[in-house]
């Protein structure tokens, strides 16, 4: 299953890649492959912006606006006026909001 095309904020700088392969390991949607001892993006539209590749890249070669692809989270953040879009379907403190939520 593929989501919308040409929307991801994923950026990759091959010059900074050390070839450790962490990004190919952590990506759940096969966006990266090793090519000639460096990582290469093979299917950008599969990216769900979870941020796993960026977090685990030891050389900062990957950048992505990490977030949850959850409409409910976007609505809740808008209503609260908060910039950050995060999954608030739990955590105890936000029990009331989460009881009607969709995610997690």
């Amino acid at each position: 299953m593929t989501y919308m095309k040409n929307v991801t904020t994923l950026e990759y700088n091959r010059d900074l890649c050390s070839g450790c392969g962490f990004c190919t390991t952590v990506c759940p949607h096969e966006v990266f492959k090793m090519d000639n001892r460096k990582a290469a993006i093979v299917d950008k539209d599969n990216c769900m912006e979870c941020g796993a590749c960026m977090m685990n890249c030891p050389t900062g070669a990957i950048a992505v606006d990490k977030g949850v692809g959850c409409a409910y989270a976007v609505i809740v953040s808008k209503l609260r006026g908060s910039e950050e879009i995060s999954c608030d379907c739990g955590g105890g403190e936000c029990e009331e909001e989460s009881s009607s939520g969709g995610c997690c």
Partner: peptide, 17 residues
């Protein structure tokens, strides 16, 4: 709202739709 519990949607895509 099913986007939130799906396994492949991105925030940029959700914002766009």
């Amino acid at each position: 709202n099913l986007t939130g519990s799906s396994t492949y949607t991105s925030l940029s895509g959700v914002r766009k739709e």
